[in-house]
Simulated scan of single mutants.
Amino acid sequence: MTKYELAVIVNAKIEDDARTAAVDKCKALIERFGGQITNVDEWGKKKLAYEINKMNEGFYYFIQFDAETTAPADIEKRVRIVDGVIRYLLVKQDEA
């Protein structure tokens, strides 16, 4: 298993329930493709570096997980269309 991190920025203009649902959907996708979530770090509402879809703020979440090397491609395909997610980045973490 390889260690990965999924950084997700969720729309700040949606309700708390919808925001939680978007993050839960991302977690479910990770588990659906054989990943085991090790840590979820919520950074809260932060200012974006640049405007995205006329928004200046978003909620930042960092989900660390272990998965096989084939899982990230499948996860990225589906995170791209999750409602409420305005940006995401999935990276492989260093072993050190």
Rank of each mutant, 00 (worst) to 15 (best):
L89Q: 12
K45Q: 11
F33D: 08
I14S: 10
G35I: 01
P72Y: 03
D74T: 10
V85R: 06
I37F: 07
A18L: 12
K77V: 00
V10N: 06
K77D: 10
F33K: 05
W43A: 00
K3N: 15
V10F: 04
K3W: 06
E51S: 12
A22S: 13
E51I: 10
E15Y: 06
P72F: 00
L90E: 03
C26Y: 01
I63M: 05
A96I: 14
R19P: 07
N53V: 03
D16P: 10
L48S: 11
K27C: 04
V79S: 04
C26F: 02
N53G: 12
L90C: 11
P72M: 04
I37N: 11
T70Q: 14
Y4G: 02
E15H: 08
D74K: 15
P72C: 01
Q64K: 13
A49T: 09
Y60A: 00
P72E: 01
K27M: 09
A71G: 05
A22G: 06
K27V: 02
R78I: 10
V23D: 10
N11D: 15
L90W: 05
Y50T: 05
G34N: 11
K54N: 15
K27L: 02
Y4D: 00
K92Q: 12
I37C: 05
I14N: 07
A12Y: 07
V23R: 11
F65E: 09
K13Y: 10
Y60L: 02
G35E: 08
F65I: 07
L6D: 02
E57P: 00
K47E: 13
I75C: 03
K46R: 15
G34T: 10
I30L: 10
K54W: 12
A21H: 05
D66N: 15
Y88W: 13
E76H: 04
A7R: 07
N11A: 09
G84C: 08
F59Y: 15
I86S: 06
N39A: 13
L90P: 00
D83L: 08
K27R: 13
V8W: 02
V79N: 07
G44E: 09
V79C: 06
T20F: 05
Y50A: 10
I86C: 08
D16G: 02
G35T: 00
P72V: 00
Y61G: 01
A7L: 14
A49N: 07
Q64I: 06
E95Q: 11
V79T: 07
D16C: 00
T38D: 12
I52N: 03
E57M: 07
R78F: 10
N39I: 06
I81F: 08
K92H: 07
V23A: 06
Q64M: 10
G34W: 06
A22R: 02
V40T: 14
E95H: 08
T2P: 08
K77L: 08
L6A: 09
N56F: 06
V40Y: 05
Y4A: 03
K3Y: 11
Y50V: 05
N53H: 11
C26L: 08
K77E: 11
R80F: 03
A18K: 12
V23N: 09
A67Q: 01
D74M: 12
N39G: 04
A67K: 02
W43E: 09
R19H: 01
K54V: 04
P72G: 02
I52P: 04
F65D: 03
V82M: 04
E57S: 09
K13A: 15
K27N: 06
A21D: 14
A71I: 01
L90A: 01
F65W: 06
Y88T: 04
L48P: 02
V10L: 04
